[in-house]
Amino acid sequence: MNAVLHLAAVSRVHGEGATEVHALRSVTFRAHPGELVAVMGPSGSGKSTLLTLAGGLDAPTSGSVRIEGHDLATLDNAGRARIRRTSVGYVFQDFNLIPALTAAENVALPRELDGEKSRIARRLAVTALEEVGIADLVDRFPDEMSGGQQQRVAIARAIVGERRLILADEPTGALDTDTGEEILRLLRARCDAGAAGVMVTHEARHAAWADRVVFLRDGVVVDETGSDEPEVLLVEEAGR
């Protein structure tokens, strides 16, 4: 099974000379279909950098980032933007919904930006909102919803149109325990249905929902629970 996300020996250096900061040092990381991977580490360990690079929002200093086999470095800006819209879904701690748009409009937006007719985009959006259990809130605005409901909208936006890579940055950070657990249940269900998920979190209880937990310290993967199935990697390398 090919990895949906593959970071190969990725390093990211910010600044230079005396102020040089090595945010990531030669990190290799994969997320496979059906797998939810949690990334844990203290602030400054490089976990946010990893997520930013995985989503094509920043480029590595060295090494490569591949999403569904596409090396992001070989794509132009338009190509990267297209991958970001069609293959990658983001979930942020603070939901990042557009306040002037309803739930359905927020979810439909990435599809519309991708050239989908707005009627079809809305239908896809409603389906995604149903999937996260808030079909009744499609015409609500973000400020008419609770935090948990807003995060469900954000998840619907991240999964609309069958995107296969879900990147979540502290998705439960702003929510109470029970609501946070519901959000994890949704992410988990999406991965069980075949997506690859990468979740950055500092909460062990939430990371425990993942199949694999990767520990980052000072830009280096120091350990992980479970394994990245070496036999799968062999097949993958042989197939190239």
Binding site: M40, A204, R205, A207, A208, W209, A210, D211, V213, F215, V222, D223, E224, T225, G226
Partner: peptide, 16 residues
């Protein structure tokens, strides 16, 4: 510390 954390995390995954 790191070994213990990995082991405890694995148990936490089992309970979850």
């Amino acid at each position: 510390i790191q070994r213990q954390r990995t082991a405890t995390m694995a148990s936490l995954q089992d309970y979850t």
